[in-house]
Amino acid sequence: MSSTTKPQGFSTESGSRRADRIRLLAQPAAVVVLVGAVLVWAFTRNNDAIEAESINAGVLLTKTGEHLLITAVVAAIVTGIAVPLGVLLTRSWARPVAPLFIAIANIGQAAPALGVLVLFFLWTEWEGLWCAALPIAFYSLLPVLRNTITGIESVDPALVDAGRGIGMSSSGVLFRIELPLAVPLVLAGLRTALVLAVGTATLAFFVNGGGLGELVDTGYKLNRVPVLVVGAVLAVGLALIVDWIGAVLEEYLGPKGLA
């Protein structure tokens, strides 16, 4: 539970640059092939009226758009809350309360996402985007919070000492030394959070939040396998693409000079 997501970028087990480059291209290529094949199959078969209701460009684009919107909102909330909170919790005066916040975030992740979602809906009686995004954000908060804290705490204390010693203010040290050096871990946490968010966003339809989960639900309830397959494959493809974007960000947004 206390393990930290390590920055991976595109490094694979072998660690060779060649394997990295192959994955950089292979992951999105595989997604395009998989999703493309399934869409071609779904659009060229003889769909009945109920299937055609779901399997058309307009519906698929809308549902994918809703799904992405939830994910983007979750990412924004998580970054906006977990990173500043993580920074605050590493300040010396806040150290004593840090375990409390970690515990709360742990509860968020340990509780089943669907449970958190439904309880939040029952409590607030909201529905739609925000009713889906807020509990999912709570659920995805932990990796970013924990990685921000670990990232800042793992900065060599000698560098903080050197920064203060040559006359940087404490906020100068935070913004120029500690945060930039914590970026790889923060991004790794964000990538994990995004993948969690894309996955759990399939549950958003329970609170009328839309998303690709709705296709899966429709296909299941009306016993229309093609609709179910299209919804599931799109959700998987989206998760892989988001993971890939996270990897690209880790590769190019991290501080230079560390490798």
């Binding site: 560098l159 000492d161 050197a162 203060r164 040559i166 050096l181 501080p255």
Partner: peptide, 30 residues
């Protein structure tokens, strides 16, 4: 204290250079 330290040079073991700054950026800090 910060004003004071900008007038007092400080060098430590293993240099304490900022790894994400170039040589020129490190020297330019103060």
């Amino acid at each position: 204290a910060d004003t004071l330290r900008r007038k007092v040079g400080y060098a430590i073991q293993q240099a304490g250079l900022f790894p994400h700054f170039t040589v020129a950026q490190n020297i330019s800090v103060v």
